[in-house]
Design a protein around this nucleic acid. Structure first.
Length: 262
DNA sequence: GCCGAATGCCCAA
DNA sequence: TGGGCCTTCGGCG
């Protein structure tokens, strides 16, 4: 579920549903009981996403930090909300809305210095207006690590996960094993812009669909359920050659070595 | 019912 | 570098 688009979509939705309201906060599962009781009954003033992190600011100055990790998930209900089902770390309710959180890696209150430290180790977020491509490029250009590893390093740039990594490199025609210091500036610019476009589509669509409605390069419409060019596939959507699947940067990489030259 | 995998990331060694 | 953690879901019996 969660790459950067998911978190930015959640920030937009939660801002609309919850911000400016007094929130009833509970932890049905109990593992966030302490934090929930601090936040309960407070006005939520803002919701913000940065990379794969979500921050909720409350009237009293408290900051709630949520990181979904690999398994975390939010569900929305209208009031009256159903009985909590499964392991619910957090439930936030207004008179009309209810948002449930299960399985997060982090659901915690942060002190200002902890918040600052967290942001300090995040690279530019491709979905933020103020994201500095130059800053990310400096890090990439100075690194002998592979592009595939660099894209997943949230301190280089933030928001890209395993699906967008594979898809962004494919559409940009770049081989995942290219080293950062081998990359040309214009290649990085193309990759960056491709990823920004994909992530923006993801926010709009609420899911990752990187194939276009009609793709000139492929010359046909995607089949039903066909959402990616290489990720999770056996054959390249464009040329039909076998997809190479291997471990890169501790995650499964998918690439077409015909379309993605070194 | 059990097992493995999944769009993430941290930590110890 | 490997293991651990958080949870759900689909495939296999």
């Amino acid at each position: 579920m969660p790459e950067g688009h998911t978190l930015h979509r959640l920030a937009l939705d939660h801002r609309k549903w919850l911000a400016g309201e007094v929130i009833h906060v509970t932890s049905p599962q109990g593992r966030f009981q302490g934090g929930a009781s601090v936040l309960d009954g407070q006005l939520l003033t803002s919701v913000e996403a940065w990379g794969k992190h979500l921050f909720y600011r409350f009237e009293g100055g408290e900051l709630l930090h949520v990181h979904l990790g690999l398994f975390g998930r939010f569900r929305r209900h209208r009031q009256p909300a159903p009985e909590p089902r499964g392991q619910l770390r957090l439930r936030m309710e207004t008179s009309t809305e209810c948002v449930d959180l299960s399985g997060p890696t982090a659901c915690e209150l942060l002190e200002p210095d902890e918040h600052a430290a967290l942001l300090a180790r995040l690279g530019p977020d491709l979905l933020r207006e103020d994201a500095s491509r130059q800053q990310a490029w400096k890090r990439v250009k100075a690194s002998s690590r592979s592009l595939g590893a660099l894209l997943l390093d949230q301190s280089v740039l933030s928001g890209v996960g395993n699906v967008y990594r594979a898809e962004g490199l494919f559409v940009s025609g770049l081989h995942p094993e290219l080293r950062g210091d081998e990359l040309e500036s214009r290649d990085f610019t193309r990759l960056w812009k491709t990823l920004v476009g994909m992530l923006q589509d993801g926010v709009r669509d609420r899911k990752i669909i990187t194939v276009k409605h009609f793709d000139q390069a492929v010359g046909r419409k995607p089949r039903r359920g066909e959402r990616t060019y290489v990720y999770g596939r056996r054959e390249c959507r464009r040329c039909g050659d076998s997809i190479r699947v291997w471990e890169l940067g501790s995650r499964t990489m998918y690439a077409c070595e015909t379309c993605q030259r070194r």
